[in-house]
Write a protein that binds this DNA or RNA. Sequence first.
RNA 1: GUCCCCAUCGUCUAGUCUGGCCUAGGACACCAGCCUUUCACGCUGGCGACACGGGUUCAAAUCCCGUUGGGGACGCCA
Length: 487
Amino acid sequence: MPGASSNVVRVRFAPSPTGFLHVGGARTAIFNWLFARRHQGVFVLRIEDTDVERSTRESEASLLDDLRWLRLDWDEGPDTGGAAGRYRQSERLDEYRSQAQKFMAAGFAYSCFCTDEQLQARKEAARAAGRPPQYDGTCRALTEDEVEGRRKEGLPEAIRFKVPDEVIRFEDLIRGDVALASNTVGDFVLLRSNGRPTYNFAAAVDDHAMEITHVLRGEEHLPNTLRQVLIYNALGASIPRFGHLPLILAEDRSKLSKRHGAASIGELRAQGFLPEAVVNYLVLLGWSHPQGKEVLSVDELGKDFALERVGKAAAIYDRKKLLWMNGQHIRRKSVDALFPVADPYFPDDIRSIYDENGRREILRLLQDTIENLGDLEAECAPFRSPVQIDSEAREELTAADARPVLAALAEELEKMGDELTEPLFKDMMKTVGRSTGIKGKQLFFPVRAAITGAVHGPELAGVAAIKGRDALLELIGRAQGIGESTS
RNA sequence: GUCCCCAUCGUCUAGUCUGGCCUAGGACACCAGCCUUUCACGCUGGCGACACGGGUUCAAAUCCCGUUGGGGACGCCA
């Protein structure tokens, strides 16, 4: 595919399949995806599984799964094929090996036979002496004979890049002019002694082979960018544009990592966050809409997103605002659009009591109150069977006014046909109020307590209509029993 | 330790490039009130920041320098 260059924007998201997708990675993926969208470009998904020990196919599968859930569709990737053919680095080993050989031949790289122990010892010594713990170039000076000798001894052989002494300058899409001195890094490994490439080598070789035009990634990669540019130079290739995104930090201001609670996308999904809310929230960590809009649809984001409005300062991940954002998106959806995604979050007992229409009605009632779909579990309490009566509700049922109110309501219910609607229930309550002379909270609390088991909850008439006459009569009967036994 | 990056309300941010319109705007959270039979939703209001010190300038949140603070990177991890 080299040679097929054109002006299309090509970006990539290149996770390593060593764990779950987490908000930091997701944010990087989102920015790349949005950038591709905005420029009618190509979004490439590449799997960086060069670490044999830690990479797993399960992680890869869950990564793709989370990406799909976020609706970040890729144009080229491990499952789609594409111009580059292979999008897993483990399937591209021949590329890295042959490139490493070319570097050796051209004098850009050399063999290294240092052992882990030696490396470790020198690193500690350097640290103790207050020097940066970089590779000291021991094997750089090896003669051809010495190299041959070590090979014959069967020593493990790695290939290191001969870092030239120079200053790399480039215009970062987000941070502006960046100058990085190559003497801040030692001769780094290109090919491990097990024949696998390291991250920096594989990433640079692939970004070049896949004709990536813009590399958007977290700021922690700035030192890697230096190494990768050096490789690009050795390749004789022109470098892509780089943009280093500000980091997402945990509440304690350290880099957000797996230890920091529910920061994995999978968990957010399990808890009932909507993908559009997660995307919306994460984009706002570092980017702001030109008109200051906050609640945005994915389409709006795709239309208005631009790197120019991405800031440089790290941002702290705030779950409270994510929750608020999620509530906003839940409320924006029509019940019909929300139902398919919300339905799996109904607890099993509710599912067995109410059919699809029943659950849809419950959702309609709860849509304005919940912050995430996981709240459905708790908010469904009034609809469970049997209804649990909490202590506050119990107190209401033993109040003096409870007995006449409940009796009158039961009487009204007995008189009606079987179709109980919200307006009908409201009328009944009016009638009960008139006949008993009780009004306001004294009128409503006992009824609420009897039919929902709590003094707080969704709109009473709505609950009543969903439950229906027979269930109501039964609940009232039970409540009357409680009122009498305790009074 | 060395190198690099960053710096506006507790948090996300607008404003900074192109100094004056900034007695610094919005959002989350928090507090109060309203709405409501309740909780929530919603609405209204309140609290709350230009890290500090020097310059430059008629004028600085905005430009420059320093200090402090925070973060990241220094792997045969990515």
